Computed example of a mutant assay.
Amino acid sequence: MNTATTGTDVRQHILDVAKPLILGKGFTAVGLTELLAAAQIPKGSFYHYFDSKEGFGEALLGQYFSGFLQHLDALLARPGPEAQRLMAFWDYWLATQISDNPADRCLVVKLGAEVCDLSERMRAVLDQGTRRIIERLARCIEAGKADGSLPLQADAADPAELATRLYQTWLGASLLAKITRSRSPLDNAMASTRQLLGLCATAD
């Protein structure tokens, strides 16, 4: 690494190098020695920016959610009816999960089950990040009801409950897609999403 880079640059460099490693192998399988070699930094530099590997994992997840939420906000701010914006998000999710680029994959799916029993700090970041995603989806669903673009049934769940159900559906589908090495679970999630949102017979 260039020794003239700032502390912020070095910290970001470590996180950038680590993400594809973690996505490929998981959190516990990537040892500190491998991470230091990939980032080309001494151990002292790592501990200057992170108090532990757990602290590093916490920062990695925090950065992931920050970028994910920024992209979600951009999708939900596009011109057009709310239903179209919401479906653009699910289209994005499907596209990234079937992508050949491991860097596109969902870090929640990769690390959720692995780290929640290992680290309360990392579990808390996952909990907070997923809640923020669901909150945004719920607001979009509420707005879609208001503008008429989401023709939900009268007995449909309230927006927060529906957003939670949809997010859980897509997390499960993403995990099953990994297990089966097939996009079928994601296609099924898309069909279920359209049905739950009342979009089966309408264009998005």
Rank of each mutant, 00 (worst) to 15 (best):
N101A: 13
I14V: 11
A113V: 09
A157Q: 12
L176R: 10
V17Q: 02
I133E: 07
T33C: 07
Q12T: 03
A191R: 08
K19I: 00
L176W: 05
C140L: 00
T193C: 07
L36M: 11
F50I: 07
D16K: 05
S149T: 08
A203L: 13
L75A: 01
L126Y: 00
S66C: 11
T5V: 13
T180W: 04
L137W: 08
E161Y: 00
F56L: 11
M190R: 06
A156R: 14
Q63H: 03
A157V: 02
T3I: 14
A39I: 13
F27A: 09
A29K: 06
E82N: 15
D104N: 11
L137N: 05
G80C: 04
K25E: 06
V30Q: 00
A173W: 03
T8I: 14
R85W: 03
D158T: 07
R85E: 02
T180E: 10
S99P: 06
F68L: 06
R11C: 02
L176K: 07
A77H: 05
T130I: 06
G57A: 07
K43C: 06
T202G: 02
A177N: 00
T8Q: 13
L21I: 00
P42K: 14
T130Q: 15
F68W: 11
R78I: 14
A77N: 11
G24K: 15
L118D: 12
T28M: 14
G62Q: 03
Q168S: 13
F50L: 04
P81C: 03
A95K: 07
L69W: 00
T180F: 11
L171R: 10
C200D: 10
Q12M: 01
R165E: 10
Q84W: 08
Q195C: 09
L150M: 12
Q84E: 15
A4S: 14
S52M: 12
T202F: 10
H13K: 08
V125E: 04
A143P: 02
L35F: 03
R165M: 15
P79T: 10
L197E: 08
G57R: 02
A154T: 05
V115S: 04
R194D: 06
D204L: 10
Q84L: 11
L171T: 05
I133Q: 11
G26R: 05
P81V: 01
T3Q: 14
A29R: 09
A124R: 13
H71F: 12
L21Y: 01
W90K: 00
T164E: 08
R78N: 13
L176F: 09
L171H: 12
K53Q: 04
G198W: 02
V108H: 04
R194L: 12
I141Q: 08
L150F: 06
A173N: 10
K145E: 06
Q84K: 15
A163R: 00
T130E: 13
A173I: 06
I98M: 15
L175A: 10
G24M: 09
W93M: 09
T5P: 01
P159Y: 03
D104V: 01
F89A: 10
S99Q: 04
